[in-house]
């Protein structure tokens, strides 16, 4: 239709190059932080004998989510260890946890900000829609361009992909705090900070935790995909299974991903009901 092709491709490449050039220091800092978190989490967890960790995780699950879930976790983890995927399991867990720590560190304040200002909210919403509807794979490309191959771009892509639900639900939860509770706090002369800490966040807790849960689940799915750019972990085994047409190997690794997903979901979705 148009006489020439719009060079969207070139523009984006130029923009990414520009950012890489100007913000190299920031990206390096990111890399350092991510490496630090992943390595320490991974080494920390691998330091223990698998059985100790299995009992510990099953114990936490029991405390938070009841004996049935704990049993599933226990058997699943025993299986994981037995089929030799323990290390990959821990690596994936470390990646997810790292991404989630960063997501909470950034997403929670952004969510609060979006809750407090309609203007911020109206800017952030389309960005979040964009982030969530974009095919997950697409994030891998700029991540690789900025951070090369390896676990760092994996975590960064996960971070970007899995953050939206936390921001959304934090903002939603705080906006849904009954108007009268805010008026009551104001009437007693509460500062903005007191209102936030003593009223808004506690009342919105259930919704915010639902956001944490969702972002962890999304993060897990992304971490597996991120194996394509060398993030390691269970995704790598799945990928290898696909490449070699080894159904059994791919399925084993996929099953462990499911086990991890179940454990993470049961633990995080129980936070609220336990403490309320």
């Amino acid at each position: 239709m148009l006489p020439y092709r719009i060079p969207l491709n070139d523009w984006i490449t130029a923009a990414v190059n520009f950012l890489e050039e100007k913000l190299g220091v920031v990206f390096d800092l990111f890399s350092v932080i991510i490496y630090f978190l992943v390595d320490n989490l991974k080494d920390g967890m691998l330091f223990f004998h698998p059985l100790i960790l299995i009992v510990l995780i099953a114990g936490i699950t029991f405390y938070l989510a009841g004996w049935k879930n704990a049993l599933v976790a226990f058997l699943g983890l025993i299986l994981t260890e037995n089929i030799g995927l323990w290390e990959a399991f821990i690596e994936t867990l470390a990646l997810v946890l790292t991404a989630e720590i960063l997501i909470i560190a950034a997403g929670f304040p952004i969510g609060i900000w979006a809750a407090r200002s309609d203007r911020v909210n109206s800017v952030i919403r389309p960005i979040l829609d964009f982030m969530q509807t974009m095919p997950a794979f697409v994030y891998l490309i700029p991540a690789v361009m900025f951070f090369g191959l390896g676990l760092v771009p994996g975590v960064v892509a996960t971070f970007v992909f899995a953050m939206p639900p936390l921001i959304r639900l934090t903002s939603l939860g705080i906006r849904q705090v009954p108007k009268e509770l805010i008026e009551a706090a104001d009437a007693f002369g509460a500062t903005d900070m007191q209102k936030l800490i003593k009223v808004q966040v506690p009342v919105a807790k259930a919704t915010i935790l639902a956001g944490v849960n969702q972002s962890i689940m999304l993060g897990l799915s992304m971490v597996v995909i991120a194996a394509m750019i060398g993030a390691g972990g269970l995704g790598e085994d799945v990928l290898r299974g696909i490449q070699r047409l080894n159904v059994g190997q791919g399925f084993e690794a996929g099953l462990v991903v499911v086990i991890l997903a179940i454990i993470l979901d049961r633990i995080t979705s129980s936070f609220d009901s336990k403490k309320a």
């Binding site: 009268e180 509770l181 009437a187 007693f188």
Partner: peptide, 19 residues
């Protein structure tokens, strides 16, 4: 001023903190 002069407010739907 509010802290010094007002006993807050009492609301129709109570507006007490559920947590």
């Amino acid at each position: 001023f509010r802290r010094k002069h007002f006993c807050g407010m009492v609301f129709q739907n109570f507006a007490i903190l559920p947590h």
